[in-house]
Amino acid sequence: MTRPLTSVERSIQGRNSWLQEEERKAIESRGEMGRMEFWLRVTRSRIAKDVKSGRDDVIPGFTSVCRLFKLAIDKRADGDARLWNHLMQYAQQVLEQHGPRN
């Protein structure tokens, strides 16, 4: 028998369900472009909340992630897909370990 969820666990579960549903709607309406735009909006909102809470290091962190992504895209366009492949593989592993559960 499993124990009932705590209010924090229910809140996290509700948030994850909301994210999954909104992502699904974005994909249905605009495809992969819609998915990307959804996650950019969610991320921008979260960055604003973190800055408001005094966690200003979120801005250089996001900037570094964007620079890394652009570098991987540029290298792939130049014919060297190693960085892109490593980045995608790492992203998949992290999301599987730490992302919301379906």
Rank of each mutant, 00 (worst) to 15 (best):
72 A>P: 02
59 I>C: 12
89 Q>V: 01
43 T>I: 10
67 R>N: 12
80 D>T: 11
55 R>P: 01
38 F>K: 01
67 R>P: 02
86 H>Y: 04
3 R>N: 13
96 E>W: 02
33 M>Y: 15
101 R>S: 02
30 R>F: 00
10 R>M: 14
20 Q>D: 07
95 L>Q: 09
92 Q>L: 08
43 T>G: 11
53 S>K: 13
55 R>M: 09
2 T>N: 15
99 G>L: 02
82 R>Y: 13
86 H>F: 11
83 L>E: 00
59 I>F: 09
36 M>H: 10
53 S>C: 05
39 W>G: 04
85 N>A: 14
24 R>F: 01
92 Q>P: 01
75 K>F: 03
99 G>C: 00
61 G>Y: 04
101 R>G: 10
82 R>I: 03
68 L>F: 10
92 Q>K: 13
85 N>I: 01
70 K>V: 04
93 Q>N: 02
6 T>I: 01
22 E>P: 00
3 R>S: 08
83 L>W: 08
49 K>R: 02
90 Y>M: 03
25 K>P: 01
94 V>T: 02
37 E>L: 12
7 S>R: 15
1 M>V: 10
82 R>A: 11
67 R>A: 06
34 G>H: 06
57 D>G: 12
25 K>A: 14
88 M>V: 04
1 M>K: 14
44 R>F: 02
33 M>K: 15
64 S>V: 09
29 S>E: 07
50 D>M: 05
83 L>F: 06
55 R>L: 11
82 R>M: 08
19 L>M: 08
39 W>Y: 10
89 Q>I: 03
12 I>V: 10
98 H>M: 12
38 F>W: 04
50 D>Y: 14
8 V>P: 00
9 E>Y: 12
51 V>M: 11
61 G>H: 10
95 L>Y: 08
22 E>K: 15
85 N>C: 06
84 W>A: 13
20 Q>P: 01
68 L>S: 07
11 S>Y: 03
26 A>P: 03
29 S>I: 09
13 Q>M: 01
23 E>G: 10
48 A>I: 00
75 K>E: 13
63 T>M: 01
13 Q>N: 12
99 G>T: 02
39 W>L: 05
16 N>M: 08
5 L>H: 07
89 Q>M: 09
81 A>F: 14
85 N>F: 05
45 S>A: 12
12 I>N: 00
81 A>W: 09
3 R>M: 08
46 R>I: 02
99 G>M: 00
52 K>R: 14
32 E>M: 06
6 T>A: 06
42 V>C: 06
93 Q>A: 08
9 E>L: 01
74 D>Q: 10
90 Y>E: 14
1 M>W: 08
57 D>L: 06
76 R>Y: 15
13 Q>Y: 13
68 L>T: 09
29 S>Q: 15
61 G>P: 01
61 G>C: 05
65 V>P: 06
99 G>Y: 01
39 W>M: 10
51 V>W: 00
21 E>S: 14
50 D>E: 15
25 K>I: 14
64 S>I: 06
19 L>V: 05
44 R>S: 07
76 R>D: 05
101 R>P: 00
74 D>C: 04
4 P>I: 09
65 V>I: 12
7 S>W: 12
95 L>R: 15
92 Q>S: 15
